[in-house]
Amino acid sequence: MTVLVAGTSEQAVAGRSLWRDARARLRRNRAAVASLVVLGAIALLALFAPYLSIHPYDKVYFDRIQVPPDFGAGHWFGTDGSGRDLFVRTLYGARVSLMVGLLATAVALAIGVVYGAVAGFVGGRIDELMMRAVDVMYSLPFMFFVIILMVMFGRNIYLIFVALGAVEWLTMARIVRGQTLSVRRKEYIEAARASGVPTPTIIRRHVIPNVLGPVIVYVTLTVPHVIIVESFISFLGLGVQEPLTSWGVLVSEGARVMEEAPWMLLFPAGFLAATLVALNFVGDGLRDALDPKQRP
């Protein structure tokens, strides 16, 4: 008996980290796992789009304009008003929309979290200065900003990421700063200071993990917003150009003809909706997984 007890206490229990625990908790969340599978499948479809259909995305079939889904001809989702295959176009649209959605959000997340956490944690004059700068940038009209970028650098799909990321991080920074203000007065921050942890490490190790909850929720709201804004920019002729397309463009085209050709709206909108629902479940799952107080 004593040998057994000594054995268990001498044997070192492997240390775990928040992130490893979070992964385990996420894996137990069925909705989140299913949503990750859905997102992965859509991403794979987008990646292998050229090999999945006999039709190229920009080929115009003059004899098959706006035909409903037709399995015999390989038009699984039908064709659009110019006689192009909608299935391939939806998958090509996924490339642009997913890339814009994820990259622009990632840019916003990276800048916003660091900026907001530093402003909120350091506080005082630096905080004032940093947040007034955010206010000034907020007041710039978004379209004006996009047009200036286009004029300066020419029309380029990557500019959309930059423009969207540069605007979306402002809200992220405000959210993170607000959360940081409430976290930095907590005693465990004082304890970390008393233990001699340098300020940048305190921000990285204690502040950011503790403000992630609302940040993740905001990320799941930002992705759809960015996808919609992209379609608006494209509609103005500043974003994705024909014959390339995106979900936002397809949905707005489909909405115009939804009475005579509902498939043109339903398929791209279905993909968009499925992606957004899946992202929401993943976001909820992540938020719960990162909170150790949630029952596993």
């Binding site: 240390g15 928040l18 005693e187 465990y188 970390a192 993990p209 990162l290």
Partner: peptide, 17 residues
Amino acid sequence: LAALDPRMTAGTIIAEP
């Protein structure tokens, strides 16, 4: 309780210094 980071395990907290 307030002096311990809620997102860290006991081992990580004690190891931090």
